[in-house]
Design a protein around this nucleic acid. Structure first.
Lengths: 343, 343
DNA sequence: ATGAAAGCGCTAACAC
DNA sequence: GTGTTAGCGCTTTCAT
């Protein structure tokens, strides 16, 4: 019973730097130097300290260090929804750099809810984090701009053109243009657009690319063939496709501005006993993992998600370190698969 | 130029509690009381302080607070892969409680890499986080056990039976049993199993349920009908299904221990020009969002993901607060859809 | 090469 | 109801 008690005592005991110093018979400064691998410590002293650290099971307290150094080494990553697979790949890229640079990422799922957004912005204001990577298209840009005057921020994927916050993204207009051009060159003339909310820049840019391709090939832009959704969910894709089927002319091809919307449309097309691509060809956008798992596999525009994450994280850390960074547009790629080619 | 400079000075200026106290003509203790909404502050004083806070644009420094109170209010959430949609829903549940209780979650994507696991465990040891929710089946259980002696930890979904760490999960064996029983009652006698690595408890439990159902209905358990994958990816599901097709007898139904594996199998079945469920019926596990987006929609076992997250987070916060908590198994539900019923 | 001491920003025990 | 002060654990400047 005595032993038990002592064991528990010892286990839950957490040494601090003072105790390590006492145990090793040196000053706290020296212990700190050993922890941080300073060169100007004699081997003999270093050994003593390392032994004391081991004996006491010492782990430096990161909060104490943060307070002293005024940096948390935490990065906020703002996304609208963790369930959206588009962001998963980007986050992988961010994590890659974060780990490498000894940062941690705090995932902030805003649900496009201003209240949740506020909580996360507050974390930055209250110095719990060193910077933000914003990927939420619904972000309150005024707040973000204001915040960026005092805090490191970069935008990833979606950005606001009328802000000075650096961003990494792709050329959405050209990407959409190429996707639609591919449909036209496959012989399609009635091409419907399933787009999301036009308040988002990417939605406007992709629509411009869609229209540009049609015009350039002498096709008329029929407003009745444009369908809009309130978000990028599977269900909204289905609903949009239902509306397509209610229209006067049924298009022979669909360009959806996201894979998830396209997959929703695909489900509805299949329910109508129509075949893709024989009856209706289908193009998505993003190249999420699941775009390859559907029947048929989806033709889509590959965004360099991993690289976007890597770039955004690198940029943010540069900004944190006081460097100046430039915005950048990365390369995309049209990926031709069964939903436009057949199998 | 002067003005510019001053503006920037003012913008990047960050007041601390001392300066607020000076500005308001009170002590730091009083400011702290106002910030933390203590009742014993006169209205007059409170107003003065609040005004000073506004004037100086003061935001309390959470790192300072953390150091003082010895709590970071950060929760680690350990998952094997952020791309796996199974975890998204759970995380939503965890976030729900975390926000409500004024905690933040630090997402830890281990990739089942021991080195990354170590980084995150260190975060706990170094007091950057207050506790861990572990959902990584590949977690090093000895380390976790050891860690749990000094730190709050709960296991979610996957757990190790030979540990004293509380967990929340479902009854995997019964769930699998019911899924396979449904196939048997639909007239199937040759039912293949696509399982993952048997080192995981859930894999063993689900296989037991599969066998139990077969035996109970007088069917023989054919080892040639069990196929194993090295992970839960789409591609592994495809590969497994390829092996099914190479076997002597082609089963009339498949039970896959995860939706993603099932979706991989579905792709391969379709490639073979076979129909689901007419030629081969298919059951998945988890009820991830995408299980409803395939053609046909997947019959699957619904795990109460959101509730699991809510429960795990509640348990962890209880443990942090020194309460004793009990492990719990939540209810699952068999969801019948097109892949076994037809449409 | 090492130590003494200041101080990062906050909370809370204690005094009045 | 308010103020004084110690101290959480660390890094870093300045001596020596």
């Amino acid at each position: 019973m005595e032993i038990d008690f002592n064991l528990r005592e010892e286990n839950s005991f957490m040494a601090n730097i003072q105790q390590v110093a006492a145990q090793a018979g040196v000053s706290v400064a020296t212990v700190s130097r050993v922890i941080n691998q300073y060169k100007n410590v004699s081997t003999e002293t270093r050994l003593k300290v390392e032994q004391a650290i081991k004996q006491l099971n010492y782990e430096p307290n990161l909060i104490g260090r943060s307070l002293r150094t005024s940096q948390s080494r935490l990065l906020l990553v703002l996304i609208p929804s963790i369930s959206n697979p588009f962001y998963s790949e980007i986050i992988n890229g961010i994590e890659h750099i974060a780990i490498q640079e000894d940062y941690q990422i705090l995932l902030c799922d805003t649900d496009s809810d201003p209240e949740r957004e506020r909580i996360y912005f507050d974390l930055l204001r209250k110095r719990m984090a060193d910077g933000i990577i914003s990927m939420d298209p619904a972000v309150h840009i005024n707040t973000l701009n204001q915040l960026s005057e005092n805090h490191p921020i970069v935008q990833c994927s979606e950005y606001k053109p009328d802000s000075n916050i650096p961003y990494v993204t792709i050329d959405n207009e050209t990407a959409a243009y190429q996707a639609v051009k591919h449909l036209i060159q496959s012989g399609h003339e009635k091409i419907a657009l399933i787009n999301s909310d036009m308040t988002y820049l990417y939605a406007r840019e992709r629509e411009m690319g869609y229209k540009k391709a049609l015009k350039e090939h002498g096709l008329t832009v029929d407003p009745n063939l444009a369908f809009y959704t309130s978000n990028l969910s599977f269900d909204q894709g289905r609903q949009a496709m239902k509306k397509v089927f209610q229209a006067d002319t049924i298009p022979s091809a669909i360009f959806a501005v996201s894979d998830v919307l396209a997959i929703g449309a695909l489900k509805e097309i299949t329910n109508h006993k129509l075949r893709v691509p024989e009856d209706i060809a289908l193009v998505g956008f993003d190249k999420i993992e699941f775009s390859n798992m559907t029947n048929p596999a989806l033709t889509t525009v590959a965004q360099p998600m991993h690289k976007m994450g890597v770039t955004a994280a690198t940029m943010l850390i540069d900004v944190i370190q006081g460097k100046t960074v430039d915005s950048i547009k990365l390369d995309h790629e049209l990926v031709l698969r069964e939903s436009t080619l057949g199998s």
